[in-house]
Design a binder for these strands. Structure first.
Lengths: 151, 151
DNA sequence: GGTGAAAACATAACCGC
DNA sequence: GCGGTTATGTTTTCACC
């Protein structure tokens, strides 16, 4: 793990608020030249701290109005491998995210669908037929907000 | 809502895999010139489909080794407004995401901490003291994977 | 760390289909 | 409307000090 100084932390904080700022704009605010700032960003990238940027899409504008979180328990933990479950679930296009967790559930899934009828189709034909699936609990997303977190 | 043709969908698919690709690089792969590709991206941005990009950080490399998902129920006895809860929870730096959901829980929180001892501190001093908080259920993240989804 | 320069990029204007 | 070409300012990226 690499050591971050004060300037690195300020750069990360500024980028969290708005990714896609140029090295020159960032450098002006921390008192560094453009190439020096850029070299710091490259160092953070090579250290694996900055992993690039993810697209922010608006699912509603693409016709996906429903987001559902599923908590799933596997029923036959001894018999079914986690790999088989993960491979099967990752083949469902409506599944956006698969989180392997420890606790009341074994997996948490984020699923999008065009509407509730479409979600029911996905649930019945794709989710409930997964190998080893047990109890399933669902929460429908109403609103969502993200925060930068402690840097 | 705007109509997307085949090329728009391919552009979105490529950007979902790696945002931050240049218009020139994208255009070469779909057989368009750089300005033509850029105009399509601008059109998608103006249509509200592309909402910019968010930084992808590696929390582990910044010393945050623990991610916990909390499902929280609000206690019904107190007449606590959702706004008051949301305002209070959004002031906790360890809370990365707040999802207002419909189902077994009222809110889902994504919380990061340096380790489990640090998480316990956050849970006892910040989470359990939130206004109107009721039952809390926790799942510790083991592994996580994202998928492009249906585009 | 800074300076300077080359290549790539974003962005706009103009033209043809 | 669509895309292509050209032109300009900016950003990235890589020399060298």
């Amino acid at each position: 793990m690499i050591a971050l100084d004060e300037i690195d932390r300020r750069l990360l904080g500024m980028l969290v608020q708005d990714a896609g700022q140029s090295a020159g704009a960032l450098g002006r605010r921390v008192g560094l030249s453009q190439p020096a700032t850029w070299r710091r960003l490259r160092r953070l990238r090579e250290a694996g701290i900055l992993r690039g940027q993810r697209l922010r899409l608006e699912p509603g504008k693409l016709g996906f109005g429903v987001t559902v979180f599923l908590g799933v328990k596997l029923s036959r933990k001894a018999g079914v491998s986690l790999e088989a479950f993960e491979r099967a679930v990752s083949g469902i296009p409506e599944v956006q995210r698969v989180e392997h967790v420890l606790g009341l559930y074994d997996y948490r899934l984020r699923v999008i669908a065009r509407d509730l009828a479409d979600f029911e189709r996905v649930l019945r034909r794709r989710i409930m037929t997964l190998p080893g699936i047990g109890d399933v609990e669902a929460n429908v997303l109403l609103t969502e907000e993200r925060f930068p977190g402690p840097l």
